[in-house]
């Protein structure tokens, strides 16, 4: 296709992505380098019968004018990145020199909002992704062995947890694990502890969120693997059987290697989606015990005095995280592409 035609075909789509994905990223970086204006203070002297008093007040009008003139705020360089809410370098070095055990150091670091969020986000990504792949494969193998008549309805039900809005899915589970809900009551009964609540401790909240993540993720892995299973060549399986491979060996040495690219695909999509975990934390009202990078940003943006600079700094750091996550994939694709060209 000539360059010219290509350009006109791609233009609307490229323009949309440029304006609403690339520019916002630039805007985020710009915002993160600025902070809100300081309020302009005026000192006035009030003289009454008992002498004069000096009082300081905020000059609302002048502050608003300044805000209008430069909506971004004043330039702050990388200041926001290193403050307590983000990388907190000063606090970290204080914690490093102030504590003598690793445990003490970590518990201090975990009290800093950014690291707390980062820890949860990474933990969520690292725990949920492999579990989704494993259980998704297990369900796919199971459904593959079902009689034909049952396959359709099973797939229909299996799709539900993925298709349903994440916020709604997490709300539904949240109501069920409520201390008065059916699962909450059930757990209290099983562990014989009437005070048991999944919302109380950070550990239990984290486990609940991980469970939700797996529940939400399995359908996707399942469908992809199930479709992959349909394309595994029968001849190879038969050959393996003739050579005396057991069922497990056939799965291990034929099916799994054959589906290699699918694992990479599911892992990639899951990593991207789990890294931006957001709705479940809102749905489970778990902000007190678990925060992710996304909820940190959301918290900064919400309300009347939104802190754009802080949100922007966290956003930039998140984008850097995504970039690190994607680098291996991009390098691999780059190599494949070059090989194809040569």
């Amino acid at each position: 296709m000539p360059h010219r035609t290509f350009f006109w075909f791609i233009l609307p789509s490229a323009l949309a992505m440029l304006l609403f994905i690339a520019f916002p990223l630039v805007s985020v970086i710009l915002q993160s380098l600025h902070v809100e204006h300081e309020q302009i203070l005026v000192t006035s002297e009030n003289c009454g019968p008992f002498g004069c008093k000096q009082s300081t007040s905020v000059d609302v009008e002048a502050t608003a004018l300044l805000k209008d003139a430069a909506p971004l705020g004043r330039f702050n360089g990388l200041g926001t990145y290193f403050d307590r809410g983000h990388l907190a370098t000063a606090e970290i070095s204080a914690a490093w020199s102030g504590t003598d055990s690793w445990g003490g150091f970590f518990s201090k670091v975990m009290n800093l909002p950014f690291y707390k969020a980062l820890a949860f986000t990474l933990a969520y990504t690292v725990v949920v992704t492999p579990l989704v792949i494993l259980l998704g494969l297990a369900v796919a193998l199971g459904v593959n062995g079902l009689p034909k008549l049952l396959k359709g309805p099973t797939i229909f039900i299996s799709l539900l947890p993925m298709i349903v809005t994440p916020l709604i899915g997490s709300l539904i589970l949240y109501w069920m694990i409520d201390a008065d809900g059916i699962l909450g009551k059930g757990l209290q009964y099983i562990f014989d502890d009437p005070a048991l609540s999944l919302k109380a401790s950070p550990l239990l909240t984290w486990l609940t969120l991980f469970t939700y993540g797996v529940w939400h993720g399995i359908p996707f892995a399942f469908v992809v693997f199930y479709a992959g299973l349909q394309t595994v060549p029968e001849e190879t399986l038969e050959a393996a059987m003739v050579d005396g491979a057991s069922r497990w060996e056939r799965i291990r040495y034929v099916v799994i290697p054959y589906m290699g690219p699918l694992f990479v695909f599911v892992a990639l999509i899951q990593l991207m989606d789990n890294f931006r975990v957001f709705e479940p934390i809102i749905g489970f009202s778990a902000q007190a015990n678990a925060s992710s990078l996304s909820t940190e940003i959301y918290g900064d943006l919400l309300g009347d005095n939104a802190q754009y600079a802080s949100a922007a700094a966290t956003s930039t750091l998140t984008v850097i995280g995504v970039a690190i996550l994607l680098t291996p994939v991009l390098i691999r694709t780059w190599r494949d592409f070059n090989r194809k060209v040569v």
Partner: peptide, 27 residues
Amino acid sequence: RYAFWLLMLALVFRAMPHITLVSGYLL
């Protein structure tokens, strides 16, 4: 080649958490 790079760029964009983009829009 640029078609391939556009697709790769789209993949990177796909990975951007939406909330980071939103924080770019608001102001």
